[in-house]
Design a protein around this nucleic acid. Structure first.
Lengths: 209, 209
DNA sequence: GAATTAATTGAACGTTCGTTTTATTCTTTT
DNA sequence: AAAAGAATAAAACGAACGTTCAATTAATTC
């Protein structure tokens, strides 16, 4: 056999991406074989190479698009005019919503950095650094305005990101808490962590668990 | 050739453990081959099987000993008589010191859970849960005593552990901060996060970065 | 110093890996 | 209806994988 009835490059590529994210998130990049991925898509292994030149290139593409999507989501969600507390609240809410909605690709992007070549790794880390820089700027503004504790800003930023990204480790969409409730709880912790009082506009949405 | 002069089972086994922790932390369990590990130890691959029946058994042993060591370290460090804030301070300090000093095995224990069989995974998770339970108990005591914010305790415990374990991602022993300084900074963040004021006995040791 | 045990080598096993090549069929364009 | 292009299957490549086995030598015991 060769080309199958109804086969379509666009659909096949999308199916490869989705299957790859799910399989790699579950078993890890090294543990997933091209044959296993192809079987999940319903295609032969050789067909994958029409869309991605190598296995690593597939991984890199998934990660790059994840990071670009994260940055794009924040640029959409960022308030144009808000004080540091409002900015921080928007950042935390966007981060948690994005990560919960894309648990699998987040897992891939966080866990599989080791499997990238030097050049590809550098690119992904550049994107990550740019994103973290946004948080550091908010913390710096807040520290200067006197609404946040002005401890080591780089360390605080890392601690916050680590904490709010950790949500994907335990959160499952069908449990007792909704995404919004989780986001508000983490936001409250973040605000206390930075030494800020919750901003007024943040509080009326908010729902304690 | 066969047995080499000066060869010693005890020393070889220790060398295997150490090399395995370093290699797996750096490249990941799946990416490290038994031949590569053997080469690092300075031995043939077949010799590894004298000490560990399978590759996974080696991984499991490393993880189990790490988790047991963590629990043991906390049992040594735990204050016999202290209020919840003192307990929490001791917990954070011990956690950070232990993880910084054993960055590589921490990395292995956190990242390679996927490579364990069901039974082995269950055992490791049991150890982890037992350790996390210690923190939850401290938070519960503090909430009841009114010194901590009494939000969702399980979620707070996870957030704190995520945050203070994150130190191994960026901390390198030769940088501007000492382990003690890092621990105090994280402790301050943890205390604010829980809504507690720093306890008096914690403050005189403390050094802001 | 002979017998026994401990530690290791070197070669080999079958399997699976990522990837390439070639041929074949479907779809679209002319 | 023929030609061109896209999408896939099937088979094969060499390399690497975890693991086993028999042989061999060093250290220990008697």
């Amino acid at each position: 056999m060769a080309r199958t009835t109804g086969s379509d490059g666009g659909r096949t590529e999308a199916a490869i991406r989705e299957a790859a994210i799910n399989l790699i998130a579950r078993y890890g990049y090294e543990a997933v074989s091209m044959r296993q991925l192809a079987a999940e898509v319903g295609v032969q292994a050789a067909a994958l190479y029409r869309y991605f030149p190598t296995k690593e290139d597939l991984l890199f593409t998934l990660m790059r698009e994840h990071m670009e999507g994260l940055q794009a989501a924040w640029e959409m969600a960022r308030p144009t005019a808000a004080d540091p507390r409002g900015q921080l609240a928007a950042f935390v809410r966007n981060h948690i919503r994005f990560h919960v909605e894309r648990r699998h690709s987040t897992h891939v992007s966080n866990m599989e950095l080791r499997s990238l070549s030097r050049d590809n790794l550098t690119q992904i880390l550049r994107l990550r650094t740019a994103y973290e820089k946004e948080l550091r700027q908010i913390l710096r503004d807040g520290a200067e305005a006197g609404v946040f504790v002005s401890d080591d800003i780089g360390l605080t930023a890392i601690a916050i990101i680590q904490m709010i990204t950790g949500v994907i480790v335990w959160f499952r969409p069908d449990e007792r808490l909704s995404v919004e409730e989780v986001a508000e709880t983490y936001l409250a912790m973040t605000m206390r962590l930075t030494g800020a009082e919750m901003p007024r506009e943040a509080q009326h949405v908010h729902a304690h668990a």
